[in-house]
Amino acid sequence: MALTLPPDSRTPLSWPVRPGNGLRASHGIARTLRVLLALALALWLVLPLVPLALWAFADRWSFPAVLPQAWGWGGVRAALAQGAVPAFGRSLLLGLLVSAVATPLGVLAARALAYRRVPLAPAVNVLLFAPLALPAFVAALGLNVLLLRVQVPPFAGVVLLLTVYALPYTSYTMRVAYGAHDLAVEEEARLLGASAWQVMWRVQLPLLAPALARAAFLAFLVGWSDYVITVLVGGGTIVTVPLLVAAAAAGTGNDATVALLSAAALLPPLVLLLVLGLFGRRPRSHQTNGDVK
């Protein structure tokens, strides 16, 4: 029997959100002010990078010259001589390890908190966020003694402590994501024949991928940019980029080296951020052609 269906109304399932419409649109002077403010903010972020970039390749730049008087590779050579490459390697390893440990831990904590499987959930929440309130050097000094007593290798100790400092970021990011995650979709997948593992890999993971990428990025930043814990727990033996920058900055005549290292230190997070922006969005249902492949 042929059915007559009503015309395709194309009514979207969710309330249509048009950021530019109605009350949210700004006009006239408000629009001009908004654009000016955005430009000022962009300038504020970019401006400090300009002297860094100039200093990195300046062999001589004395006051009051506006631009360097001599260009060269002196800064690069000095940075390489001071061990910039292995320091970059260590920082990268530290960032990736912290991210690799703190992200799954944050996922577990967030899932448990979001679905109320935790007794005394508010207290656990406070505990998870405590590292943000505790100054890093206090924790590092206190725990350093303990780590030495139980003979934890310095690098493992640094990773351990930095993971604790990254946990608030990963657990909070994932908590927000789980708050918006619909468990009914997972139940639906189970009823369609998916095992618990298949639900995790084929439904939960793709839907939470953007939040996971954000959490991993934040945890990476904690490991990548740490100074205090690496110095105190590492005992000066683990030379990372922040340590190298600080040492160079403490000396005199190292302006080009400091600038080069600082500018180079921006690159890995920037690349990660770009990757996140390009691929870290919720995977959209891809448009295929009409043929069944």
Binding site: L13, E188, S195, L207, R282, S285, Q287, T288
Partner: peptide
């Protein structure tokens, strides 16, 4: 388990997987 009962459910909300076409 629900996946082995030979059943499927349609609920009030369609609950389609948003990451799949």
């Amino acid at each position: 388990g629900p996946e082995h009962r030979g059943m499927a459910m349609v609920q009030q909300r369609p609950l389609l997987f948003p990451h799949l076409n």
